[in-house]
Simulated assay, not measured.
Amino acid sequence: MTNPNPWLPRASCGAECIRAGSGQAGRRAAVALRTTLRTILALILIPALPLLAVPLPGRSHIQRGYCRLVLRCLGVRITVSGGPIRNLRGVLVVSGHVSWVDIFTVGAVMPGSFVAKAEMISWPALGVLARLMKVIPIERESLRRLPEVVDAVAARLRAGHTVVAFPEGTTWCGLGYGPFRPAMFQAAIDAGRPVQPLRLNYHHRDGSTSTVPAYIGDDTLFESIRRLIVARRTIVGVHVESLELPGTDRRALAARCEAAVRGAQVPQAVHGHALAA
């Protein structure tokens, strides 16, 4: 897969990455039962989407609860570890990027406005959620508009809002990783606000890495959702790292946050599928 724009992360992953960490689905009857049940529960939750936009007291708690329910309906269980989640205003949240599922995973821990590719707003169901959660759209093919996005993120941070960004600029299968790009970190520096790194890890019940939630290569959104609801339980671990002060060097800030997100893992820029920035 060629990439005419050298600024854009390379998206070269394929079905072999999914097979490498797919696990076993189980017996046919069990697969049919869990698929039907998860589909019904997910459809029940869709009409509640507008509640996320209602300015009620404790809306962040509603958003967290809703995202957890969506994950549970999809067969994903979430665990949270690490440092405390500090109740600060104007924080840039960053993490590695595997899938559209990351939106619900981060939303279940630290809900906020997401920076995501513009075409996501046109997606069924998820597009509605994107608009309700005031997604900051980015046209990844247009470098000239990148400063506008950075300014928009900085403005949200100054106003005391939480903003979530995925600095890899593309999704990765979970078995490999891409480098953090420094552009979004400039917003934290401009606004003088801290950055909260989150380490996400999708795995099977036996602890092995799961690529089931991945949205990569030539995946369609439908196929990605189907793969998730058919699979056995997926567990996502969210490790809350220490807050990073912005400093004055966006590249140094990006490197510090990437080191925190990776932990003991070694970054490997090998696979991907463009989704968010």
Score class of each variant (00 low, 15 high):
residue 5 N to T: 10
residue 7 W to M: 07
residue 11 A to Q: 07
residue 15 A to T: 12
residue 17 C to F: 13
residue 18 I to W: 07
residue 19 R to I: 04
residue 20 A to L: 12
residue 24 Q to P: 02
residue 25 A to C: 04
residue 26 G to P: 10
residue 27 R to S: 15
residue 27 R to A: 15
residue 28 R to T: 12
residue 30 A to I: 12
residue 31 V to H: 04
residue 31 V to E: 12
residue 35 T to H: 00
residue 38 R to V: 04
residue 41 L to K: 14
residue 43 L to T: 11
residue 46 I to V: 15
residue 47 P to M: 15
residue 49 L to G: 03
residue 49 L to N: 13
residue 50 P to N: 04
residue 52 L to G: 05
residue 54 V to T: 15
residue 55 P to D: 11
residue 56 L to S: 11
residue 60 S to E: 15
residue 60 S to T: 12
residue 61 H to Y: 11
residue 64 R to D: 12
residue 65 G to D: 12
residue 67 C to V: 11
residue 71 L to H: 01
residue 75 G to I: 13
residue 77 R to I: 07
residue 78 I to M: 10
residue 78 I to H: 04
residue 79 T to A: 15
residue 81 S to G: 11
residue 83 G to C: 13
residue 86 R to T: 15
residue 89 R to M: 05
residue 91 V to E: 00
residue 95 S to W: 08
residue 96 G to W: 03
residue 99 S to N: 07
residue 100 W to P: 02
residue 104 F to W: 10
residue 105 T to P: 07
residue 108 A to F: 11
residue 109 V to E: 07
residue 114 F to P: 00
residue 117 K to A: 03
residue 118 A to Q: 06
residue 120 M to A: 12
residue 123 W to Q: 13
residue 124 P to M: 03
residue 126 L to I: 14
residue 132 L to Y: 13
residue 136 I to A: 00
residue 137 P to N: 09
residue 142 S to D: 13
residue 145 R to E: 12
residue 146 L to S: 03
residue 147 P to T: 01
residue 153 V to E: 00
residue 155 A to C: 01
residue 156 R to S: 04
residue 156 R to L: 05
residue 156 R to W: 05
residue 157 L to D: 02
residue 157 L to H: 02
residue 157 L to I: 05
residue 157 L to P: 00
residue 166 F to M: 09
residue 169 G to S: 06
residue 170 T to C: 01
residue 171 T to D: 05
residue 174 G to C: 06
residue 175 L to T: 04
residue 175 L to I: 07
residue 176 G to V: 11
residue 178 G to E: 05
residue 181 R to A: 02
residue 185 F to T: 01
residue 187 A to V: 04
residue 195 V to D: 00
residue 196 Q to M: 11
residue 198 L to R: 03
residue 198 L to Q: 04
residue 200 L to A: 07
residue 201 N to E: 14
residue 204 H to E: 10
residue 212 V to A: 10
residue 212 V to K: 08
residue 214 A to R: 06
residue 215 Y to L: 09
residue 224 S to D: 02
residue 224 S to G: 10
residue 227 R to A: 09
residue 228 L to A: 11
residue 229 I to M: 00
residue 230 V to G: 06
residue 235 I to H: 13
residue 237 G to L: 08
residue 240 V to H: 06
residue 240 V to W: 05
residue 241 E to I: 06
residue 242 S to I: 10
residue 244 E to V: 14
residue 247 G to W: 02
residue 249 D to I: 05
residue 253 L to H: 12
residue 253 L to F: 15
residue 256 R to D: 08
residue 260 A to V: 03
residue 264 A to I: 14
residue 266 V to D: 14
residue 268 Q to T: 09
residue 269 A to C: 14
residue 270 V to D: 06
residue 270 V to I: 09
residue 271 H to M: 07
residue 272 G to V: 10
residue 276 A to Y: 03
residue 277 A to P: 03
